[in-house]
């Protein structure tokens, strides 16, 4: 469904700070894949998602979505079929608007509404409640609460609802539980799993937690220095343990995983 062909992305080209964040990167993602992505700091994981989402324009190569070339499609157009979550729970929601208004905004994504029609219609409310209920955070009773007053975990869970209220073709998660405490993080991860499974959403998830990367999804992509170091799937992935993966990584890259990655 998504194909990256020989994609390169260079920061500060032709200066001393030149950095090839993506180096002739090619990847084919199948429909329904849930790929977890790991790799040391600066490996280019976030850059990869930014390139797919259109936040950053790539310097070489091309990106295809369902055989359609989207290399030069602007970010807001790609957002019609791509849902996104960031590490920072503050990034995904509008703090001075209510839960309902945030959902209302997400709900009109990819639809051709009359821009002057009423944003929040009474008949949408049951649907809003329905998508909030599985979170088990009681948000369905707080539709009129200002989002800025919610906790980080609640905001991240809400962002997840917003990203998926109109089912996206592709969901991009960039360490979306990293800023949360352990318990909330697990909760949000469970919700993620539930939503992805229910709607069969093709997903790319960056994490710095190797155990999580192996536990969730059907493939694991290990990145290093803007390239794919190796990809795990099928039987090989099932048998993989955290220790073995770290060993494999240092063999392939002559590098040790940073401490952070072992957490």
């Amino acid at each position: 469904m998504l194909e990256l062909k020989d994609v390169s992305l260079i920061f500060n080209a032709s200066t001393v700070h030149e950095k090839k964040a993506l180096d002739h990167f090619s990847l084919t993602i199948e429909d329904g894949d849930f790929i977890t992505i790991i790799g040391s700091n600066g490996a280019g994981k976030s850059t990869l998602l930014n390139a797919i989402a259109g936040t950053l324009e790539i310097d070489e190569g091309s990106i295809f979505m369902d055989q359609k070339d989207i290399t030069f499609m602007p970010e807001h157009k790609r957002a019609n079929f791509i849902g996104r979550l960031f590490q920072d729970p503050l990034k995904g929601t509008a703090p001075h608007m209510s839960v309902e208004e945030n959902l209302g905004l997400a709900f009109c994504r990819g639809k051709k509404y009359n821009p002057l029609s009423k944003a929040i219609r009474k008949k949408d409310r049951p649907l809003f409640k329905e998508v909030l209920k599985p979170l088990e955070l009681g948000l369905e009773e707080r539709l009129n609460t200002q989002v800025g007053l919610l906790s980080g975990g609640q905001r991240q869970a809400l962002t997840l609802c917003m990203a998926t209220i109109v089912t996206p073709k592709l969901l991009l998660l960039d360490e979306h539980t990293a800023a949360l405490d352990a318990k909330t993080s697990e909760q949000v991860m469970n919700i993620t799993q539930k939503i992805v499974e229910t709607h069969h959403i093709t997903t790319l998830m960056i994490t710095h937690n190797i155990a999580l990367a192996l536990k969730y999804g059907n493939k694991t992509l290990v990145m290093n220095d803007g390239k794919i170091s190796f990809m795990l799937e099928g039987e090989e992935r099932k048998k993989m343990s955290v220790e073995k993966l770290i060993q494999l990584y240092s063999q392939k890259t002559d590098q040790m995983f940073a401490d952070r990655a072992l957490l």
Binding site: E75, H76, K77, A79, G92, A94, M97, L105, C108, I120
Partner: peptide, 19 residues
């Protein structure tokens, strides 16, 4: 609503298909 969100959180708005 999009206008208000744009002033409140521009990053989010771009990620929700609004120019």
């Amino acid at each position: 609503l999009s206008l208000r969100a744009c002033g409140d959180n521009e990053v989010m708005v771009r990620a929700s298909s609004i120019n």
